[in-house]
Design a protein around this nucleic acid. Structure first.
Lengths: 202, 202, 202, 202
DNA sequence: GATGAATGAGGTTTCATTCAT
DNA sequence: AATGAATGAAACCTCATTCAT
């Protein structure tokens, strides 16, 4: 019980932090803002987290892990490349729909300060690209992917496209409905390009 | 002369700020850090800029304008889509090579806190996507681009890919030499996709 | 039984507090440090003591009482002045040897913040000097002590010497073995001075 | 001028800190108390000192240096042992009379936390004892001091006596006029003892 | 008795900004 | 223009103490 209650409280604080960070950004958020959002005294936050930085780290670590798990699952599923990429793009886009604040924090606050991530967290972050790279590499072996394609570059482009698209949504640059269209088009464009004609020879 | 000298000093401060922001991030940089970097007294900074925020704004406004100008130039050049995209990708990648700190600040500090940009600056920022969209839209009219492609989405994906690739470089995820390969592959992958076979019917 | 168990627990807390205070100083010690040292929950401490200050007060009151009792005993023993002083110096030095942490706390934490002692505790503290003064006064009456000597000043010097010597030991300024030598020399020097020759006339 | 003004302000802060620490103790003093006492904004204190601890360190270092200089001077003066000891005791007692707050801080706050002194400062502190030891050692060579006396122990006893006497005055245990008497008696008692008769044989 | 989650007063420290020189 | 001393708002964080369980 106690353990559960403590875990619950910790989770409540994390949720509150996500909300607060999404609203005002990490630096614009006071620890007391998080506490207010969570409905607790700010001192209590320090029972669960060493300091404000640790809260952001925890959000990243724990939530990113979920993403990695999903990516790995998708990776291991049977299914062709297109299906997998569809699933991945869909997953991130749906995540944004359901947890827009979380995605906002992950994309804007963590990516934003990614160069200050400690080594361990940076590796954790880059794992997503590694998984993607593996997917592309295997597709290449299977002859699905052109031989001259660099799988790692592809992972950068693929995930970068998703990130930018979500960022655009965060910035209200595009309407909410755009996300549906995105799911379909993103993978298609990515796999088959946007040109009407392939070049004669590469 | 005086005006020129003043403009010079202002520029020196901006350059110093870029360096400082790149090294420690905007929030981690003290006004006095900028002054030290510029070799002046910190009080003097307030003769040239209203406050610290204004410095970041100025960097964004003035440097982004350069980018927009280049984009517009490339846009108006004769040349097919591939050439234009090549030029654009090349331009950003070369910019990073020559002014890595500036790119770092623009990408990490401004792009990622873009939701806090004031209206005017946000429009300024989005202008880049609008220009790209125009390029794609015209290519579509010319039949170069598939009809089902959304030009704005393409602009997101294209610029997003570049941004992510540069971010990866900033994070030292990829070696410096990677940037050369990037220039070529990025546009190819983008235009023609990465799959060996087009789908029978879309 | 209950009373005894309670008294035991109280004593355990006091011992733990002595250890903790000796290690980190009163201000550097958290109530939770004491609890950890005592192997109990920190909340429990407040069942036995009103607050952190009270713990230090209790240490002082209870332990100082022991010292006073010993001083009084020695005072009332038969024996000449030298024997008594020997016993007193020996007692304090042995106390340090056996309970170095306690002596550290008494000397460094209490003695040196003695100006903040509340009236009652201050009187309690000064009692030691009063007892010493009595010893010297009686010796003076008996003609053992020079008439021009101020008994109270002597008590200051005598106890002050011991205190400083122990402090030096606490600070590791002198080796542990020094304490033996101290026992002998201190009283001798004190009683008979250190000069080879007495002045012709005072 | 600027340098002088800065040095002055620094000194003003130190004086204010001495006053504040004497009144409320180091831990009881807020940085803002010092600022109020100095008639400045508390932020300014951090222009001159890294933090609160540094202020106490500075007081110790700079003032203790004065003491050491005086001790060394007295040491090098011509004069017999008694004259020197007289001068030293007189110096400390006069110092207390003229700068009671400084002495209070040096004795109560610094001695009190001496075990937490960093190595360098501890050595600095102990230098006083070393100088005293030298004085006694030379007197011993000259046959002024009994051969069985340990010069270092004597330095402990001598300085310890002074310290305790001043502490007694700080605690209002003895009247102010006592200090005069002290000057005379302390050295006498120390040199020639307090007993009427020397022991037949040691 | 025992626990430790919860509270929030209180202090230190930072640093953007002002302004006298 | 140039300096950097001076200001003080603002935020983080600690930790003594309370109290529900």
């Amino acid at each position: 019980m106690a353990r559960t209650a403590a875990a619950d409280k910790r989770e409540i604080i994390l949720q509150a932090a996500v909300k607060a960070f999404a609203k005002r950004g990490f630096h614009g958020t006071r620890v007391s803002d998080i506490a207010t959002e969570a409905g607790i005294a700010y001192g209590l936050i320090y029972h669960y987290f060493k300091n404000k930085d640790e809260i952001l780290n925890a959000i990243f670590r724990e939530k990113w892990n979920l993403f990695l798990a999903i990516l790995r699952n998708i990776d291991q599923d049977n299914g062709d490349l297109q299906t997998k990429l569809q699933a991945i793009a869909g997953f991130f886009i749906d995540s944004y729909r359901q947890l827009p604040e979380l995605m906002e924090v992950l994309i804007l606050e963590i990516l934003h300060s990614s160069r200050f991530l400690e080594k361990e967290n940076l590796a954790h972050f880059q794992e997503a690209f590694t998984i993607m790279e593996g997917i592309f590499r295997r597709a290449q072996k299977d002859g699905i992917l052109a031989r001259e394609v660099d799988p790692f570059l592809s992972s950068l482009i693929f995930l970068g496209s998703i990130e930018t698209a979500i960022t655009a949504r965060i910035l209200k640059t595009v309407p909410a409905t755009y996300l549906n269209e995105l799911k379909v088009q993103l993978v298609n464009q990515f796999l088959y390009g946007i040109a009407t004609q392939r070049p004669a020879a590469t």
